[in-house]
Design a protein around this nucleic acid. Structure first.
Length: 706
DNA sequence: AGCCCTCGAGCTCG
DNA sequence: CTCGAGGGCT
């Protein structure tokens, strides 16, 4: 954060300037908030500015403006909720959309666990409530904290609000000393209708659907308001526990009910995918009569010891899945098709629609995926059976995938207007006129203009300043766009010369709407703060195709410094030789990624642009991340022979969970070889290299209790 | 060939 | 946040 003068030390002129600036910024933020534009200010930042404004007004009451932000009503809340780090992450679920997806789910689990087709394997099936998830932490039977899901790792503390919900007991008896109950906060249909009637009578805004009403009600800063809202809660899971609730999912949910929580009356234990699907259909027929919104059915492996063995993928458990109901559909007219150009030059078609309500939300734009989708062809370019080309003026069906992203699903050909024409996907970039080429096997057509293309240049700059890249405070997507239009910046290096070029004449900035002398100066400071940057962030910020956050981390770790990476890429430009082999040998980097990095740096214009940038930066060396403290953390492990207690996939996942790296072949880098019966050449090689060899039992003993 | 992940791009909400 | 496409690994 930029250091600011204490209000007491401001001159009257400075105070007047800053108040004017704050009034502009806060008014703009309020406008954004209400017109649903992408907000530039976080809640926290908004609060900070508002407090700053009040502090200055307190010191200089005479300077208080007629349009003072402190007098605005309905502005953002005074304080935000505190953050809560979940002891056990709140993950999301994978999705199934068809009966076959459900059978695949069962098959995957059987395969992972090494179970046969007929082995007993039971699942729970229950409705998926459409609300928002909440984690309730009880210590010695008393509710001490309620937290929203947030991003899964960190949520918001809404304890005071949760306590106003009738279904959430403040005190429970007979529970483990630590118990985190997880479930869904929702609003019943009847309560939702009543609330909206009350809201409109008091001229307050009505809610579009029960889900939004529940979310809005729970996130009230004033718990008294939450209390007046009829929220309910279903418990269906748990986080941290001092002792197990049961050895089965169904048993644990029953235990939660015993403790006084509401649980779904429709939870059923099923012995096969057929039973699960039957229960899904059963729930679907009751859906309209339940009195609350549900959006599918959740299946979970019932045996908790199996859940434990199955574990997690990066963001979802292997042992549960959500079987979604078909999305709501709506028909509307396709007004036009626009083409947007992304940072890698990808041309993506966007449908501009007659506004239509889908699932309680008005949709006027929707993605059309790509060229083939519009033409009615599949990804290999073959005409889709019954496929139809989509034309401007057509009546199209839209839905919101995952209840979020609007998509065009279908066309009503019987409603096609006379004289309509097949949509011609552009062969040149609509922004710069360069050729737009589609590579063999690629679904997207790309503008070949590279740095020449203004659209690509702007998108690249937006990426450059984005959260995971340079993340410069006060320089968001909108400012970048503005600066580009004004010709102040054309490439990343220009950001770092802004002060030199305009610092003496900040008045120029000051004349622009929303900008004052102060904000210009703080922007310069914020830019200066980022002149030191970790190597991984720097690589990511370059926006090289196929190189995102994860790949940037790998490259940073492997090469350590920017000059080392740069030199190596130039040495590998012919895609052969030791430098190339070394690059491709990085775990997680294949020929496509490698080619992309090498090609980018081999281009004179790109390299020159990057070199101009690095001249202003101090790129920090990459250091290896902290490894865990398990006995195998940071070790490279190889499994060979037959494993009898678990499948290969399970053994690998477990080792990785403990921080080990699992490799397929023995080399000098291998630390441990786990050899089952029938181990052959790998065991011999490991013995030659003097590598520690364990049998399966010894391995399990080593990692036991971890 | 299958699995799992990352990348890139889309849109709306509070 | 969500999805589809595509890359990498086994």
């Amino acid at each position: 954060m930029v250091p600011q003068k204490d209000p007491d030390n401001l001159t009257e002129d400075e105070a007047r300037d800053e108040l004017a600036h704050l009034a502009g910024v806060l008014a703009a933020a309020n406008r954004d908030y209400h017109t649903l534009d992408a907000p530039e200010l976080t809640d926290a930042e908004y609060d900070r500015l508002k407090r700053r404004n009040s502090a200055i007004e307190a010191r200089f009451p005479a300077l208080k403006r007629s349009d003072s932000p402190s007098d605005q009503i309905g502005a953002a809340p005074a304080e935000a909720f505190s953050k809560v780090t979940h002891a056990v992450a709140m993950l999301s679920l994978g999705n199934a959309f068809s009966d076959d997806d459900v059978r695949d789910f069962d098959q995957r689990i059987r395969k992972y666990l090494g179970l046969g087709e007929t082995a007993d394997l039971r699942y729970t099936a229950e409705p998926k409530i459409d609300g928002l998830s909440l984690s309730l932490r009880y210590e010695d039977g008393r509710l001490v904290q309620a937290a929203t899901r947030g991003d899964g790792a960190v949520g918001e503390n809404v304890t005071a609000n949760a306590l106003t919900i009738d279904d959430i007991p403040e005190v429970i008896s007979g529970a483990p000393s630590v118990l985190e109950v997880r479930g869904e906060v929702y609003m019943a249909h009847a309560d939702f209708e009543d609330l909206n009637v009350r809201q409109s009578k008091s001229d307050a805004k009505t809610f579009a659907n029960p889900r939004n009403a529940a979310a809005g009600s729970l996130r009230q800063l004033d718990a008294a308001i939450t209390r007046s809202r009829p929220l309910r809660f279903f418990a269906y899971a748990w986080g941290a526990l001092s002792e197990p609730l049961s050895d089965r999912q169904s048993g644990a949910v029953a235990r939660l009910a015993d403790l006084g929580f509401s649980t779904s009356p429709l939870l059923k234990t099923c012995a096969s995918p057929d039973e699960m699907i039957a229960h899904y259909q059963n729930i679907e027929t009751q859906r309209a009569d339940l009195g609350y919104d549900i959006d599918g059915v959740v299946y979970k492996v019932d045996d908790l010891s199996l859940q434990d063995r199955l574990g997690f993928r990066s963001t979802t458990p292997r042992w549960a899945i959500a079987h979604k109901f078909p999305a709501e559909l709506a028909w509307t007219r396709l007004r036009s098709i626009d083409i947007q150009v992304g940072r890698t030059g990808a041309l993506s078609p966007v449908a501009r629609l007659e506004p239509v309500t889908v699932g309680g939300v008005v949709v006027s734009n929707a993605t059309l995926h790509n060229e083939d989708y519009i033409a009615g062809r599949d990804s290999r370019g073959r005409q889709i059976r019954g496929g139809k080309d989509i034309r401007v003026g057509d009546l199209v069906q839209v839905y919101r995938a995952g209840d979020v992203i609007p998509k065009v699903a279908d066309v009503d050909l019987s409603q096609r207007q006379e004289g309509s024409e097949r949509y011609e996907f552009p062969r040149t970039c609509p922004e710069c006129g360069s050729a737009a080429i589609r590579e063999e096997g690629d679904a997207v057509r790309r503008c070949m203009g590279g740095l020449i293309c203004p659209a690509q240049a702007v998108e690249k700059l937006k990426h450059f300043v984005s959260r995971a890249a340079f993340d410069i405070e006060g320089l968001g997507a909108r400012q970048v766009e503005q600066f580009c239009t004004d010709g102040w910046i054309a490439e990343p290096a220009d950001i770092f010369t802004l002060r030199d070029r305009y610092g003496s004449g900040v008045k120029q900035l000051k004349n622009r709407e929303g900008w004052g002398e102060k904000s210009a100066l703080s922007l310069f400071d914020a830019i200066d703060e980022k002149r030191q940057i970790p190597l991984a962030r720097f690589i990511f910020s370059l926006g090289i195709r196929h190189v995102g956050e994860a790949a940037s981390g790998l490259l940073a770790l492997h090469y350590g410094t920017w000059p080392a990476l740069r030199d190596a890429m130039l040495a590998a430009r012919d895609k052969e030789g030791p430098a190339w082999d070394d690059l491709v040998s990085v775990d997680g980097v294949g020929t496509v990624m490698a080619g992309s990095v090498v090609d980018t740096l081999a281009q004179d214009a790109e390299r020159a642009s990057i070199d101009r940038l690095t001249a202003h930066l101090e790129i920090q060396k990459a250091t290896a991340p902290q490894t865990g403290n398990s006995p195998v953390a940071g070790k490279t492990v190889v499994f060979t022979g037959t494993l009898e207690k678990m499948t290969r996939a399970e053994a690998k996942a477990r080792a990785e969970r403990l921080g080990a790296r699992v490799s397929g072949s023995v080399s000098s880098k291998t630390d441990i070889l786990v050899a089952g019966p029938g181990a052959g050449s790998k065991a011999a090689k490991a013995a030659d290299l003097g590598i520690e060899i364990l049998d399966e039992d010894a391995w399990l003993a080593l990692i036991e209790g971890q």
